[in-house]
Design a protein around this nucleic acid. Structure first.
Lengths: 340, 340
DNA sequence: CTTGTTTGTGAAACCGCTTACATAATTTCT
DNA sequence: AGAAATTATGTAAGCGGTTTCACAAACAAG
């Protein structure tokens, strides 16, 4: 199959120069006379030469690869982030090694070690499920950061060589709740899934908005869904159960578009009119918002912008520059058909 | 940042053996006495040694990496495939280098070359957008296959060192159309997007089923949507336009769940009852099916099974075994709320 | 026409690990 | 007990590049 590969040595012979010279034109480095450069390039062309990436990596101590970790690359929101990052990094000449860890700490640690072993130039953690606020579990991130820069997308952690790019989930949620309240809606159900970094921020935003309005956030106004995120019907069941228990909420504020979609499903099932009798607001402004009727109002956390800044920051760090450790972007509620 | 890394040489000194011996325990190879093995392992443990992947790659000529190419990793269906593959390959000790090419041939070629340059052990093309039946564009795949095994998921190409794992799209679509016809539905709109390998197979299945029933597949029964797949509203507009032209179809057979979702959106907009007045069938049985009400009937092409077989086949090929060049799995229509 | 700089090139060391081959130590067999 | 076979370990030659350093050629200045 693999015929004996042509090496830099073959080129050097063919072009009648030393391997050092070949290496020089390869790296576009300093001083090579135009004549020799052409000779070498011609030899490369003719023999279809491709430098051996491993040898190169060994010498340069990098293979221009970034590790991307996500819990689940098929989650519509995470998938989008991965896609943006991949495109941006490719634009910078980097490739992406993808690691899906699921939601287990053990997998996170293993994947992180693996990426370090493979000598990636940097590691990006996509999604806040990696970072827990008051949790010693974050140690593995610090360990990794001792080796390569670690970028956090939608999570924040103050540690050396760790850079965080986040959207202001707290404020977004606060404002969304506030908006509902200002419309006279007081019985708001906060429907959430993840107790991760951003999950907690969102929750805090909701609670504070309610508190500021003198409303309760006691039993029933918070529902936590544990289970497979894709299981929309099961999530709808949960809401139906709550409703049937007698808690007839006027709005669902979801920490996630998928959860919001399930609220819509629940509403259709019970014949509850959206948005007249029930407002629903999702989070992430993912493609799912367009899949339902009426279309889902959702909080846009400007993922593409976050990814752009993350990439720029990472490139800066790799270039040896001082870079901001934390960057926060404001989110924005996109109003569509599920709010009045 | 990166303190001088500890190498095999340091370990050899610390354990009082030669580097060859260290390398041996590293690779779990042949004959190392238990005593020495322990000494070495201890030294490694103590100094936190990690073998240099580049040097390893240079020596072994592999870094246990598989390249995955997809048009768009954020497409819900492709994302799912990528996820399955990543998990399966990780289980086999391989990592995944992800390349999103968009829908341009130029990008496909560039990504392919890049993966070859990075010396992946194999390349997987996810989705049929890579392969066109009667198209010279496939040349780049053959070139790549001269270097490493190329696996096609949901596409087929008969060439050396190229392996195809596909679902039987032709038959699935034939059967789906047939089922609608048997229910007395004769005006079926085939709504599709891609003219790729599987796209053509699906179309052929639809046409043949119609022909077999003596129905026409002329103007109006085939609608091709060109544009951003995520733009559900725009796709719905197209259908609305067709409808308003006077073509009141009774069913939409979509080549894709996203297209089917847009048909549902169109139906709601026009007040057409699904499934009473309009049947809708999607393709891929993706998570989107659960997001709408009624839930979308869709053709399941058993993606997970395909991925499992693809991975197994690839591992076989890499292990030097003779493996089947083409594997086809039957699909299955999952009936939900959008069909009677 | 020297002398002092550039500029272009080659020789060789090195990156960290694998492995063929040689050798030493041990065991097995007659 | 000595030869043969086996097992354990070390030496050194790659793998295919990069890069330091030395040196020769070309050019500028005195």
């Amino acid at each position: 199959m693999k015929e004996h590969a042509v090496t830099i040595y073959d080129i050097s012979k063919q072009a009648g120069v030393s391997i050092a010279t070949v290496s020089r034109v390869l790296n576009g480095s300093d001083n090579v006379s135009e004549a020799t450069r052409q000779k070498v390039l011609k030899a490369m062309e003719e023999s279809g030469y491709t430098p051996n990436a491993f040898a190169r990596g060994l010498g340069l101590n990098t293979m221009k690869t970034i590790g991307i970790m996500a819990a689940d690359s098929s989650d519509p929101y995470l998938a989008k982030g991965i896609y943006f990052l991949e495109q941006l990094l490719r634009g910078e000449g980097y490739d992406c090694l993808l690691c899906c860890t699921g939601y287990s700490l053990k997998n996170r640690i293993a994947s992180m070690e693996l990426l370090i072993t493979k000598k990636v130039d940097g590691i990006i953690l996509v999604g806040s499920n990696f970072v827990y606020e008051d949790d010693a579990d974050n140690k593995y991130i610090l360990d990794a950061a001792a080796q390569v820069p670690v970028m956090l997308l939608n999570a924040a952690l103050d540690a050396p060589n760790v850079y965080s790019i986040t959207s202001d989930d707290y404020t977004s949620m606060y404002n969304a709740a506030n908006m509902l309240i200002s419309e006279g809606i007081t019985d708001i159900l906060y429907f959430f899934n993840s107790r991760s970094y951003s999950g907690r921020r969102k929750e805090a935003g909701f609670r504070d908005a309610m508190k500021a309005a003198g409303l309760s956030t006691g039993d029933g106004t918070l529902q936590f869904y544990r289970g497979n995120r894709e299981d929309v019907p099961a999530m709808a069941d949960l809401l139906e159960h709550v409703w049937d228990q007698g808690h007839h909420f006027e709005a669902v504020l979801a920490s996630d578009d998928t959860l919001a979609i399930s609220a819509l499903k629940f509403a259709v099932r019970k014949g509850i009119k959206v948005p007249e009798e029930l407002s629903v607001i999702g989070y992430n402004n993912s493609m799912l918002t367009a899949c339902v009727t009426p279309e889902l109002s959702s909080i846009d956390n400007r993922q593409e912008t976050l990814c752009q800044h993350l990439t720029a920051t990472l490139m800066g760090v790799l270039g040896g520059n001082e870079m901001p450790k934390q960057t926060v972007f404001a989110g924005e509620l996109i109003r569509r058909g599920t709010t009045r």
